[in-house]
């Protein structure tokens, strides 16, 4: 099973909940993989302290022009939609940072002057933390293409066990890459105007992707009841409300998981998972 933990707004508690859920389920004897797909700012390792057993560099293909074979016809520059190739009368220049790796230039080159080399986008770490399997991506600083790295993290999920995917914030392409093909999405929000606004954006995204989801309200007592009223009106399941708790916040600041700081939460996360996985009609709105 693949379960994604996402949110529109950042800092609502995705990592706290993803890590806690992974630890709570592993404590029940389940086979759990935690996959950090927030590759720009991955934080799961801070709470899990994993032993990393394998580190794999991830590259994307970018063109390389063999100038001796090049006739400077300019077909490569013409097909490129991303401004990554400039064709000049006596040379062809590649701006590999702008390349989206579509391979079009190589396909159109009439003389076979274009080959592909790898550009490093980051790396994937694979390991384990106590009884949780750990996979994470780390984007190379300065790199813009996070989706190929997120895709590679997801290639290392466990086909049989439970996979908990920690997604990046927002609603654009990296989030879509992280949540697509999952079985269920947990949307984490907080009951503030910013949290509510971004929750609605995230729901809009999941409606288009046609993915089933439920909402977790974190720091449930800090703002107002707009999120709850909205969920009730739209028939969206609020799976869990976690009150604002200084113990959890302090533990978080020191890199300690919420279920370790407040063991009474363990049962709530186990129950949350049961609710998600109970047999039901396919839950699309």
């Amino acid at each position: 099973m693949k379960l994604a933990v996402a949110s529109g707004k950042g800092g609502t508690g995705k990592t706290t909940i993803a890590v806690s859920l992974a630890l709570a389920l592993a404590g029940q004897g389940k086979v759990v993989t935690y996959a950090d797909c927030d590759v720009e700012e991955p934080n799961g390792h801070i709470f899990l302290n994993p032993q990393v057993e394998q580190k794999k560099v991830v590259t994307v293909p970018v063109p390389q022009v063999e100038q001796e074979l090049c006739t400077f016809c300019g077909e490569c520059a013409e097909i490129c939609q991303f401004g990554a190739i400039a064709s000049l009368p006596e040379t062809t220049l590649v701006y590999s940072d702008l390349c989206h790796s579509c391979g079009g230039c190589k396909l159109v080159c009439p003389t076979g002057a274009i080959t592909e080399i790898g550009r490093e986008v980051g790396y994937v770490e694979i390991g384990s933390a106590k009884n949780v399997r750990y996979v994470a991506g780390r984007l190379r600083i300065g790199e813009v293409q996070s989706p190929p790295l997120i895709c590679e993290v997801k290639n290392h999920l466990d086909r049989q066990g439970i996979n908990i995917i920690d997604a990046p914030p927002g609603t654009s392409c990296p989030v879509i890459e992280a949540v697509k093909d999952t079985d269920y999405v947990l949307l984490i929000t907080e009951p503030t105007p910013f949290g509510f606004n971004d929750l609605k954006l995230a729901i809009g995204m999941l409606d288009i992707l046609q993915l089933p989801f439920g909402v977790v309200i974190n720091r449930a007592d800090i703002g107002n009841d707009e999120v709850k009223r909205y969920c009730a009106m739209e028939n969206i399941e609020v799976l869990l409300e976690i009150p604002d708790d200084r113990r959890i916040a302090e533990a978080y600041s020191r890199g300690i998981a919420a279920v370790t700081a407040s063991p009474e939460l363990t049962g709530k996360f186990v129950q949350l998972f049961k609710t998600i996985t109970r047999p039901r009609e396919k839950q699309l709105r």
Binding site: E41, N43, I46, G142, Y252, S253, G255
Partner: peptide, 21 residues
Amino acid sequence: TEPTRSGMHDLERVVKLTGFM
């Protein structure tokens, strides 16, 4: 940033980015 280990870790990466740029 905020005084949490996550905040500090992410600050380091973002400062590297702006430094690099």
